[in-house]
Simulated scan of single mutants.
Amino acid sequence: MTDEDRSATTHFGFLTVSKAQKALMVADVFHSIAEKYDLMNDLMSFGIHRLWKRFAIQCSGVRRGQKVLDLAGGTGDLTATFSRIVGEKGDVVLADINESMLKMGREKLRNRGILGNVSYVQANAEALPFSHNIFDCIIMSFGLRNVTEKDQALKSMYLALKPGGRLLILEFSTPRCKLLKKAYDLYSFHVLPCIGNIVAQDARSYRYLAESIRMHPDQEMLKSMILAAGFNKAEYFNMSGGIVALHRSYKF
């Protein structure tokens, strides 16, 4: 394979595909699982994803009156909480590249009476359709691993943040303990697709989920990528033994 061929391809889980093909394949995954997304999150994490997200919100430093971007925000769990935190004078933008996920998020939040300070934008993280320097905080929860050009997405987030703004990336990562990693691999590649097949009638999408986690940069690599995009003071916090990590950085 030539250098030109490599530059035109990327990974979809363990498969090598063209970059254009990956975007379509990821879209198909989330169109397929959108209706069962919240239920599957609870089942496959045993509800612990709520604690991971709560910690991310605590680390965000978001205050009343601020403007927050919930990027790849899916069905809006984080948006709902940030809406309450920023209050009537604040703004929260729920953005997702996938139309089905964004529709589910809009319906869920509106059914909960969350209306006034939340807006919805279908957006690609690699080229955010926002002015520069407008958000106090950008958070991306379990979405970065699905982005084809992660470096470009991080640069786009940097531009959208205000000076002094904070970026938080909550994502599956690399377990620190070898024994935990073996157990996690067993669960991911054997149990998780079975749950997906039973609940969502879609084992393939949850097999991709497990593979995409393994192909995602580990904690130190992602930290280096964030710094290379221009951010300052990048740090990360391991949770559940490193199964998940929260990266936090600042734009100064």
Rank of each mutant, 00 (worst) to 15 (best):
G65D: 03
K108H: 11
D136F: 07
A200E: 04
R248Q: 15
V17N: 07
K181F: 01
P175L: 03
K108R: 14
A80E: 14
V93I: 15
L192I: 05
L115C: 02
M140H: 02
G116F: 12
I33G: 05
V29D: 07
G13T: 04
G230H: 06
R54V: 02
L227V: 07
S100T: 04
E211F: 05
I139S: 12
L167H: 05
E235H: 10
F55H: 14
R106L: 13
R207G: 01
P129H: 08
L144T: 06
I243Q: 01
L94S: 04
L167S: 08
D42S: 07
A228H: 00
V93E: 09
K53R: 15
L227G: 09
G230E: 08
M221K: 13
S18A: 06
T9V: 02
S32N: 14
S131G: 15
Q122M: 11
F135P: 04
L71R: 06
S188V: 09
K162C: 01
L51W: 12
A229T: 04
N146S: 12
P217E: 10
D70C: 02
R50P: 03
V29Y: 11
G113M: 05
A20L: 14
E4C: 09
G65L: 10
N111M: 02
A127M: 06
Y187T: 11
V68T: 12
Q152R: 15
C194I: 13
I97R: 03
S188D: 00
M44P: 04
G65H: 09
A234Q: 05
V92S: 07
R64G: 13
Y236V: 08
A210H: 09
S119W: 06
R106E: 11
T9H: 09
D77T: 13
E149G: 15
F172S: 07
S60L: 13
R84H: 00
Y208P: 03
